[in-house]
Simulated assay, not measured.
Amino acid sequence: MQRIGVLVGMQSEAKLARHLYPAAIEASGATKEGAKSALKRLIAAKVTSIVSFGFAAGLDPLIKAGTILLPNVIHVRGKDYVSDPALRLKLGAEKSRIKVGALLHSDEIITASAEKQKLFVQTGCVALDMESGIVAQYCEDHKIPFAVLRVVCDSAARDLPPLACLALSHDGNLKISQMAKSLLVNPAQISGLIKLGVDAGLAYRQLNNFVHQKNMFESV
């Protein structure tokens, strides 16, 4: 039996990824260095393919929070990486409610809706995240099949509060103390945080429902 490696950004995503059994799971903490270290650990665990899993930011204005993504192309600094068709099919790419298309890699969190919409016009990518491009490059270098399974957490119209850039530690957990300090300095963020929380809750439920439909890797 093949062994699937799953890269996530946050520990909350890792909890959902445990339903993609059998799989080795590592968290990046939403940093480039963290992702590279996590991928090395997955390779050391002798995985035969890797899935980038978790949340993404919407760029296409027609895509709402909670939309499941199985992109066929990852766009990284002008180069396109094609995800493995067989692995995508195993993840449910044939389902009518799944959004395909291109996913954009970003090295930083995009907080402004105006910037998201600008990136959509420039690239045509339907969404972006901070891990999938690193996975795509790493897997090409190591000749390992990869795929991406993500859910839109914040839509193209959603502005993120500044504390979103401070939220994650390198092990993928939330930095509660830093978030609290940021709110004390700028309490106007509370409204944006609540709205983001509503969208994130919807995204989490949708991805949870999706991965609970069946044991996706039972016959891989």
Score class of each variant (00 low, 15 high):
V151Y: 01
S113F: 05
H170N: 15
I109F: 05
L163F: 14
D154T: 10
A164S: 14
D159R: 02
A127Y: 01
V121C: 09
T111K: 12
E108N: 12
I134H: 00
L166P: 05
A112E: 15
G172A: 02
F120W: 14
V126T: 12
R158K: 14
M130K: 08
P145D: 09
H170M: 07
K116E: 05
I110C: 11
K118D: 13
I109N: 07
F146H: 09
C125W: 02
C125T: 09
L166K: 10
K143F: 06
L104C: 12
I110N: 01
S132I: 01
P162V: 02
L163W: 03
L128G: 06
A102L: 02
A127P: 10
D171Q: 14
V126H: 06
D107V: 00
D154Y: 06
C153W: 07
S106L: 06
A114N: 13
R158S: 12
L128Q: 09
K143A: 13
V152M: 06
G133K: 05
T111E: 13
E131Y: 01
V126F: 04
L128D: 02
V135C: 07
L103R: 07
E115S: 14
T123E: 13
D141M: 07
D141F: 08
F120L: 03
G124P: 10
E115H: 13
V148Y: 04
D141C: 08
P162G: 11
S155P: 09
A114K: 15
A127T: 06
L128K: 07
G101D: 11
T123S: 15
C165S: 15
E108W: 02
V126L: 09
F146N: 05
D154I: 07
P162R: 02
I144W: 07
L104D: 08
V126R: 02
Y138G: 00
V152W: 07
A136T: 03
V148P: 04
I110L: 00
A112P: 08
C125S: 15
G101V: 07
G133L: 05
R158V: 00
F120S: 00
P162D: 06
V152N: 03
C165H: 13
R158I: 01
G101M: 03
S132H: 04
V121G: 10
V148Q: 03
T111P: 01
L103F: 06
E115I: 11
V148H: 08
D154K: 13
M130Y: 01
S155C: 08
L103V: 01
H142I: 00
A112H: 14
H170V: 08
D107W: 00
G172R: 04
C165K: 14
A136V: 05
H170K: 14
R158D: 08
R150T: 02
A114R: 14
N173D: 11
N173K: 14
L119H: 08
I144N: 00
M130I: 03
L166T: 06
A127F: 01
Q137H: 05
L168H: 12
A127K: 09
E115C: 09
D159N: 15
F146D: 04
P145K: 05
L119G: 07
C153H: 09
E131V: 08
I109L: 12
I144G: 07
K118V: 08
A167Y: 08
E140H: 13
G133H: 03
V151M: 05
P145T: 03
I110P: 09
K116C: 10
A157V: 00
L104N: 06
